[in-house]
């Protein structure tokens, strides 16, 4: 009995449908580790597999994927690891920090202890290169997106939005309120992998 459906989402991509981001991440990693496919991309409830249609008939890809996932863990990958991220809250580092604290009715200290109290899971990376959606934010810190997104948010910026906190690994446009900044190198093209934060990892913040 299969725990998942596999469907075509195009003539060169299959998608595995799963129940949770945790399973999507674990499965994506297991399939990527086969090193057979150009791209293995997890969504929140799916994993897309891009294959060479001239190398693999699609039914063969389905077989390979099913075989691989029969033995794959269905939860977060144990080897994804943990990262500590040093963050400076507020001021120039977090231009939206004071306003968010007053909107939420919490003191800056209370905000920082709530934000640093938990380990967050990297549920998804996307939207812009290396941008990580860290799940598990306290519901006391639930804020909406900015009314008008910023044209440019510097690399290392840390934002919050809804149930997520997130890290901008590279500079780019962004609509999340920014609470702080980390000087850690989240992107280094000379490293393998080039991004410090990987899907499935757990992340803890440390105020400095």
């Amino acid at each position: 009995m299969s725990r998942f459906d596999v469907v075509d989402i195009s003539d060169y991509c299959l998608e595995v449908r799963v129940e949770s981001a945790a399973t999507a991440q674990a499965y994506a990693r297991a399939i990527r580790d086969l090193d057979l496919f150009d791209e293995v991309v997890p969504g929140l409830e799916s994993v897309a597999i891009l294959y060479h249609t001239t190398l693999f008939p699609s039914d063969r890809v389905v077989e390979i994927v099913r075989e691989c996932l029969d033995t794959a863990p269905a939860e977060w990958h144990a080897n994804a690891g943990e990262r500590r991220v040093r963050i400076r809250y507020g001021g120039k580092n977090g231009p939206d920090f004071s306003k968010i604290c007053s909107d939420l009715g919490v003191s800056p200290q209370a905000f920082i202890s709530l934000h640093t109290a938990r380990a967050y899971r990297v549920e998804m990376i996307g939207f812009t290169p290396g941008f990580s959606y860290l799940g598990g934010l306290s519901d006391k810190l639930n804020v909406p997106r900015l009314l008008s997104p910023r044209q440019h948010v510097p690399a290392g910026s840390i934002g919050i939005c809804g149930v997520y906190t997130g890290i901008y690994a590279m500079g780019g446009p962004g609509g999340w309120p920014i609470i702080g900044h980390s000087a850690d190198d989240f992107f280094d093209a000379s490293k393998t992998p080039p991004f410090l934060i990987e899907p499935g990892m757990s992340v803890r913040f440390e105020a400095i």
Binding site: E39, G130, F195
Partner: peptide, 10 residues
């Protein structure tokens, strides 16, 4: 630039 879509790289 292939192989990095899981890091959000187009």
């Amino acid at each position: 630039r292939r192989g990095y879509r899981h890091f959000g790289m187009p």
